[in-house]
Design a protein around this nucleic acid. Sequence first.
DNA 1: GTCTATAGATGGATAGAC
DNA 2: GTCTATCCATCTATAGAC
Lengths: 198, 198
Amino acid sequence: MPNMKDTIKTVAIDLFYKKSYFASGISDIARLAGIQKSSIYYHYSNKEDILFDILNTTMLDLNSSLNQRLEGLKTAEEKIQAAIESHILFHIERQKEVIIADSELRGLSIENYKTITKMRDDYEGKFQKILKKGIDDGSFIKTDYKIISYGILTMCTAVCLWFDQKGRLSKDEIARIYKGFLINGLKKSHRSNSRHQE
Amino acid sequence: MPNMKDTIKTVAIDLFYKKSYFASGISDIARLAGIQKSSIYYHYSNKEDILFDILNTTMLDLNSSLNQRLEGLKTAEEKIQAAIESHILFHIERQKEVIIADSELRGLSIENYKTITKMRDDYEGKFQKILKKGIDDGSFIKTDYKIISYGILTMCTAVCLWFDQKGRLSKDEIARIYKGFLINGLKKSHRSNSRHQE
DNA sequence: GTCTATAGATGGATAGAC
DNA sequence: GTCTATCCATCTATAGAC
């Protein structure tokens, strides 16, 4: 039994995803929510407020998903695998919201913009910390960890753009393939390993 | 000496990049181009026509950049390196346009949408063909070449989102780092190589 | 090829009744 | 908490003079 504020938020997510924020009108939201457009303003102070609510919730949830998934893990390799998996699964499960988060930041006021990008930067920082540790302790190849963090994150973020619920592969299979590829790219060529056979 | 149509296109690229397509008005474009808004309609039949012109040119140029760069190359490894480099450099050199191309497809009519996505799919197909060849001939690890093509392409596409002209690294350095990382991820662990020392 | 003028619709937002 | 009614700004696009 969702209250009206949740209903408004849900239809707004749908609209912003399908038509973009600026192409969606308050009247569109009201029509889909089944109320008059003036009633929107009882729940939200203006249009941007709806957008901010969506982005804020999304970033908070993204961040706590990562924190939960990392709990108790020790090595950089374990951690980066868990972080990659968490990021991919979130970007599939919350497809519409993360697409909005990735494309509608221009709809925010300067202040709100800073709030959201700060959360995003903190989140990225956690990936960078893991990568740096793995490079420093010799688990990963020597590379520019900042640039590679952008690479990994944007590659896994973009899954939300092409993932198809009815497609050939499940979200878990995609996470597995990406993890394998990325870990292979991060690790050295194992020539120093004791194993000499596959 | 640009003509007025080019001027309109240039300021539209700037506006659509900064404010998004739907948040940009014909009056904004006219003001920046230094003419009255009605004069826009002498050069373009409507607002969408401007967007389509931008996207069409961008896709044509992206595609021909790739074709030129691939000319004469033989092996899958040579080809994928060249393709990655071409893709990254284009996404830095034409930053504004590719950001529009990646976020404003919803502004197109069904017909125009099909035209642009067809060009994008053909372009992606070239990457997939190279990857498949490399997997089949044993140069690359056995993996899902379609999924990995999305990974490589979206990772290199997203460079346009974070690249900073005044930043620490040049576009060539970024291309080199990404190429190294991706090739390392695509190739086997060399355990069968004759070299046993770094 | 660019102008002035304007049509006609829709945008976000507010006032005040219930 | 939702409604009706309305304000005013802005939007895309067109007509017709120069």
